[in-house]
C-alpha cells in the first residue's frame, strides 16, 4: 500500500480541546465504573460507586466550558444543537462533532441526576433524597446503564472525531483511535477513583483492590490499542509525525501504563506513596491525548 499523502491544513485544536478530551474521558469512564460497581451487586462497593458518580459529574462540568471557549464565536455554541440556517435541530449523525454535541447534552442529564442521587446518599445534599430513593434498585440500574452508553460514547467519539477528517495520523489511525481513547478513559477513571479511595474512609479496602485489578485489565486493553494505532499509522507512512520530540510524551504514556503493574509487583514501587501510581496513570491519559492532538498538527 502506498503511503497516504495529506495536504489538509491543521484545525488548530489545542489546549481547550486537550482539556475537553481529558475531562470528557474521565467523566464518561467514571460513570461507567460507578455503574459496573453497582452491577457487581455488592453493597460494600456502594461508597466507591457514589464517588464514581460524583467524580463523573465534576469532571463533566468543565467540558462544555472548554468546548465553548475553543469556538471562534463562543456565543454561538448553541448552533451545535439548533440549525439557524434551515430551522429545526442541527443533527448530523455522520458528523461526530454533531453527534458528540447531542451525546454530551444527554450524558450531562444522566450524570447530573446520578450525581444528585450520590450526594444525597453521602449526606451532602439531602434535598435530593427523593431522587436517590427513585434510583435505588432496578430503576437506578436501568438509569445508570443508559447513562453509561452515553458516557462511553463521550470517551470514544473524541477519537472518532479526529479520525473523521483528512488530517495525517488522525485519519490514518482510523478505527483504533476511538477504542484507544475509551480504554485510556477507563484506566484513567479507575486511577482517579483509586486516588480518591486512598483518601476516604468510606471506601471499602477490598473495593479499592478490585479497582486496581480492573485498572490492570483496562491498561492491557489500552496498550494493545496503542500498539494497533501505531502500526496503523506506520502502515500509512505517517509514524514520523508522532515520534521525534513527541517521544517524551510517549514516555509519560508508558510510565502511566506501567505504574499499576509496578505497584503490584515491584518492592521498590510498593514504597512509593499510594497516590503515585494513580497520579502517573492520569498523567499518562493526558499525555496520550496530547501526543495525538498536537503531533498531527505540528
Amino acid at each position: 500500500m502506498p503511503p497516504a499523502e495529506h495536504f489538509a491544513a491543521a484545525p488548530e485544536w489545542q489546549w481547550w480541546i486537550l482539556g475537553y478530551f481529558f475531562f470528557g474521558g474521565i467523566a464518561g469512564g467514571s460513570y461507567a465504573l460507578g455503574t459496573l460497581l453497582r452491577f457487581a451487586g455488592d453493597p460494600r462497593d456502594e461508597g466507591a460507586a457514589r464517588i464514581a458518580f460524583i467524580a463523573s459529574f465534576l469532571a463533566l462540568i468543565p467540558c462544555p466550558v472548554f468546548l465553548t471557549l475553543d469556538l471562534g464565536q463562543p456565543l454561538r455554541f448553541w448552533h451545535m444543537l439548533v440549525d439557524t440556517s434551515e430551522g429545526g435541530v442541527a443533527f448530523k449523525p455522520w458528523s461526530p462533532m454533531s453527534l458528540g454535541s447531542w451525546a454530551l447534552l444527554l450524558f450531562g442529564l444522566f450524570s447530573f441526576v446520578s450525581f444528585l442521587a450520590a450526594v444525597a446518599d453521602v449526606g451532602w445534599f439531602r434535598a435530593a433524597s427523593p431522587i436517590a430513593r427513585i434510583l435505588r434498585g432496578g430503576a437506578g440500574l436501568v438509569w445508570s446503564a443508559v447513562g453509561t452508553v452515553f458516557g462511553l460514547f463521550i470517551c470514544a467519539y473524541t477519537g472518532v472525531l479526529l479520525a473523521v477528517s483528512n488530517q495525517p495520523v488522525w485519519s490514518d489511525g482510523g478505527w483504533a483511535l476511538g477504542g484507544m481513547f475509551l480504554a485510556s478513559a477507563l484506566s484513567g477513571s479507575a486511577a482517579l477513583l483509586l486516588l480518591v479511595a486512598r483518601s476516604r474512609r468510606d471506601v471499602d479496602a477490598d473495593t479499592a483492590n478490585r479497582l486496581e485489578a480492573a485498572d490492570r485489565y483496562f491498561v492491557i486493553l489500552e496498550a494493545l490499542l496503542i500498539a494497533i494505532f501505531l502500526v496503523t499509522v506506520a502502515v500509512a507512512g505517517t509514524i514520523g509525525k508522532v515520534l521525534g520530540v513527541w517521544i517524551v510524551l510517549w514516555l509519560v504514556v508508558a510510565l502511566g501504563l506501567l505504574a499499576p503493574f509496578a505497584m503490584a509487583r515491584w518492592d521498590v514501587a510498593r514504597r512509593w506513596p499510594p497516590v503515585a501510581a494513580p497520579l502517573l496513570a492520569l498523567l499518562g491519559v493526558l499525555a496520550l491525548r496530547a501526543v495525538v492532538i498536537f503531533s498531527a498538527q505540528s
Binding site: L36, F39, D45, T148, G178, L182, L186, A213, L221
Partner: peptide, 20 residues
C-alpha cells in the same frame, strides 16, 4: 471508528465486571 469503540467498550465492561 465506532465499531472499534463499541468493541473496546464491550471488552472493557466485561473485564471490569469480572474484576469487580
Amino acid at each position: 471508528g465506532y465499531v472499534g469503540g463499541v468493541a473496546t467498550a464491550v471488552i472493557g465492561l466485561v473485564a471490569g465486571l469480572l474484576a469487580f
